[in-house]
Design a protein around this nucleic acid. Structure first.
Lengths: 241, 241
DNA sequence: GCATATTTGTCCGTATGTATA
DNA sequence: CTATACATACGGACAAATATG
């Protein structure tokens, strides 16, 4: 079993099955899922930039889990499209193409617009949309541009939740996780996110008065513009070298 | 409850779907994926009805693969929502609730209607929709009601493809795979599918003349009715012994 | 409620196949 | 072409959880 390797420093203190106190709480999730969580966070934070190869041996010994367990975690993330798996070559942090970005925005437009279109009175869940706008306001006042970006994601997740479908919610979580692979190319998050706060406020206003089709139009325009900015930055970034 | 291994084939006849075209271009598929294919097919065909427990030992020796490989396959299918995983208890073929069915149709309505709404001229890909209608016609003439059901699935996949988004296509594949978990409760596939052939033909007609919003209305009505029939049959089935 | 058998969760070692220096 | 590094898949081991009598 987990033979304690003397002096071996685990870079990531995976709880493992170490403490009985933790056991009751942590036994709910499998080791593979915890490993996947750790890797997902690192990828989202940009610690593992797109294209990075994740060698089984290095990651496995670094996290103190066996290769079999690690492969399970890799598979979870591969299914979430955060990793790509090349047979007999290993797994890599996904590198999105321009086409991928276009498709992600195509899906967002389809989902988010559909979620607000049918609104003709203030829908249940509108509070969460308002909360996300507030979150963005606070972040802006504190000059926390990263927080502004997070608030923007929450805003769009809240919009999506108006559709009232768990599966659509999960789809959107995946879509936004994929997009985070690409958001890091935005050198100046302030210039990218700040203008959208006003738009979000406006969209919220339309929803609160039951003007679904008005909200849809604003949303569609926002998504087109955001995609354009992102593609520009991405094309520029990837032609450097 | 010792469920006899339905796949009593001791050997490993994993369909070498190594189409020569694949060999050259795409990488070979891993063993786990081939195992997942086999299990997916058995589930779709109703050989493993919802609730069935898939014991590692039985399935693994039945298919002639190791436990590790099998667990990889289980994880793939769990992520597709075809299996559920209970810690320390194993994996089971998913049992959908009425709420699940409602959500599946909610998503279908959102996706499929959005895919046809914007149409104002015959879109690229309309041939595939026409092909699916033809497929249904042929099946009906041959009194092949199972084939009629398959053609209906193809019809809706072709509609979805009009959105032109790989991610939406994949989402719909997953949605329909989940629904197949439930289609088996329809005792009389003829009565269920046959009436929809006329509707499908009508929807195709609207698309071919560029009447997207007309197609959308027909589609929405179809989906509501199909859901109602399915929920009725499902509720009846699950309240029986 | 207890003791036992079965099954799962995790990990290891390794033979074989595959890509790259 | 050989050598090296790595991925694949297998079988075995043991602890922990569950099912069974």
């Amino acid at each position: 079993m987990n033979t304690a390797v003397p002096g071996s420093v685990r870079q990531l203190p995976l709880p493992g099955r170490a403490l009985e106190a933790d056991r009751a709480l942590l036994a709910r999730t499998s080791t593979a899922e915890r490993v996947a969580d750790v890797l997902r966070t690192r990828i989202a934070e940009g610690l593992f930039p797109p294209g990075t190869r994740l060698a089984e041996d290095a990651i496995g010994s670094g996290l103190g889990v066996s290769r079999n367990t690690l492969r399970e975690a890799f598979q979870l993330l591969t299914h979430e499209r955060l990793l790509t798996h090349e047979l007999n070559r290993g797994v890599f942090v996904r590198v999105l193409t321009i086409d991928d970005v276009a498709d992600l925005y195509r899906v967002r437009k389809l989902i988010e617009c559909a979620a607000v279109r049918g609104i003709d009175s203030p829908p249940p869940g509108v509070e969460r949309v308002a909360d996300a706008v507030d979150e963005g306001d606070r972040a802006k006042k504190q000059l926390d541009w990263q927080g502004l970006g997070t608030a923007n994601l929450h805003f769009h997740q809240a919009l999506t939740a108006l559709a009232g479908s768990p599966r659509v919610d999960e789809l959107m979580r995946g879509i936004l996780a994929e997009l985070r692979l690409v958001f890091h190319v935005m050198a100046d998050p302030r210039r990218f996110y700040e203008p959208y706060l006003a738009t979000n406020t406006e969209i919220l206003g339309r929803i609160e008065v039951g003007d679904g089709s008005g909200a849809e139009q604003l949303l569609a325009a926002y998504l087109d513009k955001a995609q354009e900015q992102l593609v520009d930055a991405y094309a520029q970034r990837t032609t450097d070298g």
